[in-house]
Design a protein around this nucleic acid. Structure first.
Lengths: 291, 291
DNA sequence: AAAGCGATTTAGATCGATCTAAAAACGACG
DNA sequence: CGTCGTTTTTAGATCGATCTAAATCGCTTT
């Protein structure tokens, strides 16, 4: 008589016995191989149902040397922009049968490296990564050393050669400037500038290009501060001296939302006194607009 | 001469050979067992470094029958509220060495069930789940059948007995009403009502309790519509007939943001003409408030 | 009846770790 | 020097699937 805490998980061997076939045949049925005869297939299927068999992917993975798992390494899970990204990845996975590990680097290259190693130990088939601010080529070296296939999203380590899925931020900003110019705005200020990663650089560069192209007033950039904020006193200074800004292009929608706050205090009516353009198209950003 | 696509991954056996010990000893070193003599431990460590050994958790998991992985099943990844939740879980995991699979049920019980089975096949140690709208006791039955330990978050299947981590939504709403009453608001309307899941019911019940308790005007609830919206014409009807509402409590912050839109159209000044209370404390919700 | 051939089925090795139970090494001691 | 008690090391089984190479079955063909 054997003691058993758990009801001794049903393995493929148990199924095979129950169906009166070998482990190998049962395995073939699992994988819908055309090699098995129809009656046999049904017998095995019935046995699986009877015993409540649960496929053990872990065991299969060990043998097959792939896992059907992907690591999703994000620089800041809390940013709602990434929520949509994650939802999209999940949808694709649901169709293909893969599944994601999620990991937050929280903009720390050290944590990022720790997470990557952990994912590697779990034998993920590959990585989708938005590199943390401050990541450099050592990230790429590490990925190569670990033999991890990867795709970068949104940001890009310079000279990394691998695949990148991103947004043409520069072009987007240029189009925004063009639109504002068409609305007769001339004194456009950029709010929330950074140079910390490729996606931020691309925006600033696009802005500078557009300003020059349209021959607009060159106003100082208002730098980003902390998570979703910007240097308010710098913006105040712009309002109180020199040519008054009449429009803003914001680094992203969160910055834009914060800017509303500021404009409210100055009693500027958004859309008429002052135009605001954000970036990301968050659903929430629609709320404060006027009809 | 053997052909090898990959450099034939270094296994523990290779490390053991390199260090001149047995597989068992090398394994003990991996797990920092006190059984190994210091010089041996160092020899093995050196061998690991020299060969670039990578721990294969998959193999270990098979033997140990646990994986150090958790399934995080969310009802709607796109809701920014869950971003914070995910970030918190990730932080705890980073400390404990665990890691999360992420899965989105997208408020579909069928997709939810599919995801749960997938997670089970990957041998997750347990589940953190926010049940999709429409989930009932069959969800609990399925989890039990699969022998999956679970914690429910934010929502709760009635009669589920398991652990739940949630928010006292009813109390929160009651406190909001009390606050509004203290600000001399009397005609408070609830915007975005639903009865589809426990967290929604709790809010509505809390609201009703508070209204009765303070003897306030009983105004019809404004129902939720679709993702983050509410029935606008119902709200319009309230404004145009009977006692005029002077405050709103919103189902959540996203509804509140949407409500600003509406109030702007009616040229109501928020905070003076009309008070708005949201729920969730999203950072973005701070943006449109006035100082 | 033996041979041949395609269709099925299977025994046994294998993936890379952990676990158990036992062996080996080492000192101390009588 | 043999015995005993630690301390350290190890051989071999094991987890549950997949893969390879070979065996077996059913029929037809000669």
């Amino acid at each position: 008589m054997k003691k058993s805490v758990h009801p001794a998980a049903v393995s493929l061997l148990a199924v095979a016995k129950e169906a009166g076939v070998s482990r190998a045949t049962a395995s073939l049925v699992l994988r819908d191989s055309p090699l098995v005869a129809e009656p046999t297939r049904e017998r095995v299927r019935a046995a699986m149902a009877r015993l409540g068999y649960i496929y053990n992917r872990g065991a299969a993975n060990l043998r097959q040397n792939r896992t059907g798992t992907i690591g999703l390494v994000l620089s800041n899970i809390a940013n709602p922009f990434f929520s949509s990204l994650t939802a999209g990845v999940d949808e694709a996975n649901d169709a293909s049968g893969a599944i994601c590990f999620i990991a937050n680097s929280a903009e720390s290259p050290e944590k990022q490296s720790r997470q990557i190693r952990r994912l590697r130990e779990h034998n993920v088939d590959g990585l989708i990564i938005c590199p943390a601010i401050g990541s450099d080529h050592t990230l790429i070296d590490e990925l190569r050393l670990l033999a991890l296939p990867y795709v970068q999203v949104l940001r890009e380590i310079p000279g990394s050669e691998g695949d990148v899925v991103s947004v043409d931020y520069g072009l987007g900003i240029e189009q925004a400037v063009a639109y504002l110019v068409a609305m007769n705005r001339r004194n456009i200020v950029f709010v929330g500038a950074m140079e910390t990663h490729s996606a931020a650089q691309a925006r600033v560069e696009g802005f500078r290009r557009a300003i020059r192209h349209f021959g607009l007033a060159e106003m100082p950039l208002v730098e980003a501060m902390g998570g979703n904020g910007y240097n308010e006193s710098a913006l105040d200074a712009l309002f109180d001296s020199g040519p008054r800004p009449d429009a803003a292009i914001c680094y992203n929608d969160l910055i834009a939302l914060t800017l509303f706050h500021h404009l409210g205090r100055r009693a500027l009516k958004i859309g008429t006194d002052f135009a605001v353009v954000g970036m990301d198209d968050l659903p929430q950003a629609k709320a404060p607009t006027l009809p």
